[in-house]
């Protein structure tokens, strides 16, 4: 443990300012969502390949089934969360100016939440027959 080092002293660790910040949790969630992605995306790709066609009526009828809509929503959560964590690491590696980094994080979070909300709402709208 790094408890002996000045740079990771008690207060800094509580505030998440040690060199690892909240990195271990981030790393772990990247793995959990990776496992989720793996299972759900194999299901998704295989299911789409088995559809009779990709027409509007075919696709909406497929999504409207509970056993499709629910895994699809899980897939949206898992992939968008994984994406947020992953792009954050990329930004941390390449953007070093604090202000610009903050802006990039905010833009990333807006993009993920907006696109994720659109995707989730769309599945629900189809499932509940809007």
């Amino acid at each position: 443990m790094a408890t002996d080092f000045q740079s990771a002293s008690g207060l800094k660790r509580v505030r998440g300012l040690g060199s690892a910040r909240s990195g271990a949790h981030h790393w772990w969630l990247q793995r959990v969502t990776a496992a989720g992605n793996l299972v759900l995306l194999i299901w998704f790709v295989a299911s789409v390949l088995m559809l009779p066609n990709l027409s509007h009526s075919g696709v909406t009828a497929w999504i409207a089934q509970p056993l499709v809509a629910v895994p699809l929503i899980l897939l949206i959560f898992s992939t968008f969360w994984h994406a947020r964590l992953g792009v954050q690491v990329m930004i941390e590696d390449y953007v070093h100016a604090e202000g610009l980094k903050l802006l990039a994080f905010i833009a990333l979070n807006f993009f993920i939440l907006a696109a994720g909300a659109v995707a989730t709402f769309s599945v629900l709208a189809i499932a509940f027959g809007a």
Binding site: H56, I63, V118, S122, V123
Partner: peptide
């Protein structure tokens, strides 16, 4: 982005 567009268009 394309995935969200596809779902939104279908909905």
């Amino acid at each position: 982005t394309l995935f969200a567009w596809w779902l939104a268009a279908a909905a």
